[in-house]
Amino acid sequence: MNQMFVQAESVLLYLTMVLYLAAMILYFIFFALKRERSGRTAGWTLLLGFVCHTAALAVRGVGAGRLPLTNQYEFAASFAWGICLCALLFLWRFRFQALGAFVSPVILLVIGYAALQSREVRELMPALQSNWLAVHVFTAIISYGAFGVSFAVSLMFLLRGRMRDNPFWQQHIPEEQKLDTVSYRAVSLGFLFLTFVIITGAIWAESAWGSYWSWDPKETWALITWFIYAIYLHQRIVRGWKDKAAAIFAVLGFICVIFTYIGVNTLLPGIHSYA
């Protein structure tokens, strides 16, 4: 990749991290010092971070001459971008600033993990030279991003119960029923896209490896994640199993997502070892 692109990407990536960190601190001030203005500023800072993040990914994509979705660094950076995108969409749709306070540390952790990975731009190996790459990985980003939001909302749910005596929390964090429904909406989005991920992955695997399902660890863990969220959705719909138990399940589901992404790559190598 051209040195100019490398430098531009580095600057934008670090700026993104600084902005996400600033958003997290402002959200902390919002809650700790009960400053309404900090909350609003934090929201704008998060949005600005997202703009820089998008620019960083775009610069890398232009510099590499392909979509930046092929190795650990690129996927981690895109994963953080997906969480931020979903968080901003949910913030806009459901209008509660507090969501940003819970989601910004998650974004920061994921982009921090990305920053620890090698940023070297490599040419694509033949198996990755497919149009399905963009569809498969992009749907994974949206899916994981939505699960990240459900994780943050579920944490809010669990903490809200413990902060019943704090009027500031009660004022700024929606009622538990609404949090439960928003978490459900995020899981619905994530689940739909995870199904897309598995199906597009199967179509791609059929043309690349000659088998649409090989029980590779990555495939298996994507299926495990799908099963976990399928249980979450069924429990809610059929048995009215909502509230705290559902929130705990959504948190567990996201831990499974993280393992599918990071744990499988590092502990259970398979044919997805480049992912």
């Binding site: 029980w215 660890p217 298996t220 863990w221 299926l223 495990i224 099963f227 249980i231 499988v264």
Partner: peptide
């Protein structure tokens, strides 16, 4: 749930 356990073992 049992399929999840089986899949974890298999991976």
């Amino acid at each position: 749930s049992l399929l999840i356990i089986a899949c974890i073992a298999g991976s």
